[in-house]
């Protein structure tokens, strides 16, 4: 099962994902994907450097699924909510199905 590495950005707390070349992105679709344990270790090492550089906090790896249309499914409800970056104020906001 492929994985990505996620965290919260230090200066504003927003959910981010480790992207290729050590960048961080708010879009899970742009996250760097690890297909093997070794690839995941490389991503985690890069993330650890970002923690030391005070770019992110609370780093952890999470499994994902790639749907047939190529989109990324964060699998768990919690991670779907994090990936959605949504607020609850508007009446018609909710796109994570019950």
């Amino acid at each position: 099962m492929p994985s990505v590495v996620t965290a919260n950005r230090l200066n504003d707390g927003i959910v981010v994902y480790l992207a290729p070349k050590g960048a961080w992105t708010e879009s899970i679709a742009d996250a760097a994907r690890a297909e093997t344990d070794d690839e995941l270790k490389v991503l985690e090492s890069a993330a650890e450097i970002a923690v030391q550089d005070r770019i992110v906090v609370g780093v952890y790896p999470m499994p994902i699924e790639i749907k047939e249309d190529g989109t990324v499914d964060p699998i768990s409800v919690r991670e779907r909510i994090r990936a959605s970056h949504r607020t609850t104020l508007t009446e018609d906001w909710y796109d994570v199905p019950l």
């Binding site: 504003d12 707390g13 927003i14 959910v15 609370g58 919690r78 909510i81 994090r82 970056h85």
Partner: peptide, 17 residues
């Protein structure tokens, strides 16, 4: 930093602070 921010009511939650 964590205990200092918590003493000032600042949590790091799911989406943000």
């Amino acid at each position: 930093f964590r205990p200092l921010r918590l003493r000032n009511g600042l949590y790091l939650q799911l989406h943000a602070y």
